[in-house]
Simulated scan of single mutants.
Amino acid sequence: MTTLEKTVTIEETALSRLDQENRLFNAVLKGPTKKPGRFGFRGDIALKFQAQVADEKRPPDYSIEGVLTVVQAGEPTISILVGYIHSFAYLPEVAQVLSGLLTPTGTYFIFCNNIDLLAKYRVVVDGITFFVLPCDESTVWKEMTDLLSIDKNDIKKLDTAGKLDYVLDAAIGFKEAYPTITVEEGIARMGPVKNRNENRPV
């Protein structure tokens, strides 16, 4: 980057509203990536806030966790976003919180705790298509690199921003023809939310 090039800020991107609403939490990355004019975020997006007492800051009730997204300065929408929710039933809230920020031509993956481990769905909410996939005891990052057949050796020398660019560039335009179901069908099929820490050593 030359000294004449301007570093992109979150205020110039589609993430600005979520930032102003204090929905962006636990950021591993929240800053410019390696691509000109591109801003990246890895962290959580709050879906529902707890009631706050006075000035006490409480963590959200629940969030889209493990979010991977990049946005372009000056563009009003998010063209790609990946994240994890504990329950399929939160999907309408995902669409509501991100309303106006997603586009029918975008690529959106939601990994979910309580759907069948062999299930892969396309779910359209308010005109936006989400690829909904199972995620049990893994991470969003590992699930995405596996889904896209990305060899970790191809990205191990990149920094956090470079890795995010690489993986999301590979994911943009994903077109697998998974069965399309409605939110109501997904809720009818979903199981109980599993405690992901149940069998893990303390």
Rank of each mutant, 00 (worst) to 15 (best):
G43H: 03
G83D: 02
V94R: 05
V28N: 05
A46M: 09
D61T: 14
K48C: 10
S79K: 14
I64W: 03
L81E: 02
V67M: 07
F41N: 09
A46G: 07
V71F: 06
R38F: 15
P32F: 05
V82Q: 00
T33I: 09
T69Q: 00
L81V: 02
F88E: 01
Y90P: 06
S79F: 04
I45N: 10
P32N: 10
G31I: 09
A46H: 07
F39P: 06
I64L: 06
E65P: 04
Q96M: 08
Q72F: 07
L81Y: 02
A46Y: 10
R38Y: 09
P59R: 13
A73E: 10
G43K: 04
Q52S: 11
K35D: 07
A89M: 04
T33R: 09
L68D: 10
S99P: 02
Y62C: 05
I45H: 11
P59Y: 08
E93G: 05
E56W: 05
K30N: 02
K30G: 00
D61G: 04
G31F: 09
G43F: 01
P36A: 14
F49L: 10
D55K: 14
A27D: 11
A73D: 12
A73R: 07
V67N: 08
G43P: 05
R58Q: 13
V53E: 12
P59I: 03
Y90G: 07
D44R: 00
P60T: 01
T69E: 03
V94I: 13
F39N: 07
G100R: 08
V53G: 08
Y62E: 03
P60Y: 06
K35L: 10
I85V: 10
Y84Q: 04
T69C: 08
T77F: 14
E65Y: 10
V53I: 15
T69F: 02
G66V: 02
Q72T: 15
Q72M: 13
V97R: 11
G37E: 01
L81M: 14
I85G: 01
A89S: 09
G31L: 14
K34L: 10
P92I: 01
G66W: 01
G100H: 04
I45G: 13
Q52P: 03
V67L: 06
A46R: 04
